[in-house]
Design a binder for these strands. Sequence first.
DNA 1: CGTTTCATTGAGTGCGATCAAGCCGTGTGG
DNA 2: CCACACGGCTTGATCGCACTCAATGAAACG
Lengths: 219, 219
Amino acid sequence: MTTQRLNIDLSTVTPAQIGEAGLIPCGVRMRFAAGEEIYAQEEEADLIYQVVSGAVRTTRLTSDGRRHIGDFYYPGDLFGMEAGPEHRYSAEALGECEVVFVKRAALKHYGADGDRLERIIWVATAQQLARTQDHLMLLGRKSACEKVASFLLDIANRFGGDLTTLPMGRQDMADYLGLTIETVSRMLTQLQAEGLVEFRACRQFRILRRGALARLAAG
Amino acid sequence: MTTQRLNIDLSTVTPAQIGEAGLIPCGVRMRFAAGEEIYAQEEEADLIYQVVSGAVRTTRLTSDGRRHIGDFYYPGDLFGMEAGPEHRYSAEALGECEVVFVKRAALKHYGADGDRLERIIWVATAQQLARTQDHLMLLGRKSACEKVASFLLDIANRFGGDLTTLPMGRQDMADYLGLTIETVSRMLTQLQAEGLVEFRACRQFRILRRGALARLAAG
DNA sequence: CGTTTCATTGAGTGCGATCAAGCCGTGTGG
DNA sequence: CCACACGGCTTGATCGCACTCAATGAAACG
């Protein structure tokens, strides 16, 4: 894990949208190796992170070891926002990954630029809520097939382009969708057999019939 | 549905915590009858609501009619906060219910009191996110029995006291927990048979062995 | 090339859904 | 006051989807 502080005059930073610049010009950069922990559950939550490159997952474990993935974060996404003083999930790098972070408590000393960041963080919190609500519907009322279809569509939309590379393995997909790894695998095979998607390798796919896939995903 | 505007000098309002005063001294009051819609999905979302008395549920439907409940709101709770311009759920009164609302866009004209409300709304949004994340874990990784146990504990903690009255019926519980009404009923019967809870009527219960129930709910 | 890790496939099981009665409290009209 | 209907809840029987257990296949790595 390597750290690098950026010396940028905050007063010259232009207003930026989340995902375009966001925290990047203001924060501290760090690199993480595959699987490395960025922060732990129940750790103090005073830092806000943004993905620069790679991808991040947030996870939680039950007392008896069942794992659940809260969300995946890709370049531009903010994560680590909490209502209380502690992180409710742990965050881990999915593969080699670079993030930038700012100390939230320090933003008030940054004047107008601090206000801009505070605002960006609140908007990101509200967007996270919206995503989490969609996720609720997926877990509560969709079949295994619909879950997997939704997931593929979501990630393909997120990255755009024809061919999409999955940054996570089957176990992560399963823990995100509330399924087992075997069921995820079976549904992928089935969707491919039906000609809705095509897998070039187990982490590379292309959507062949977007309309049909979206109809399935809608539930 | 009756509306009543309160004439209170905003400059005299003392700082208040969410749930103690919150929006109540500043907003417009409304009453709703059982089942009445407070706002609709995809309706413009410029109002923030707080429950004064009674209870509220937020619901969503899939294209083929499956229903999903996002959350229940009780006196003191804020609801209706959205990331985008539209409501993502509809909100309905659970039984006779009174709410108060403020127009979010107007808060900036209220000076210090508007700032206080803005802050309260953001905190409520972050708290809603935390609740929704707990709900995710429940839907994704818990058995029917654990779901129902979690639900009873959550609502009993929310209201305190020995005897708890459920403001919602079995169908609402089922749609919140991602189960069917029959499964909810069976699990309630089972929990009662095991001596963990006792139902006096179908909407009134008491927790008999809180530790055991909590252990079940934890998963 | 052997080892390890991850993904797929198959067989069998079980949990929760579905379908179908029955039960019970509540309200209504005779 | 009882007869009846209605809606919400419970219970029973059966079904099917997703889980479990197990084996095989396919990459990645030393």
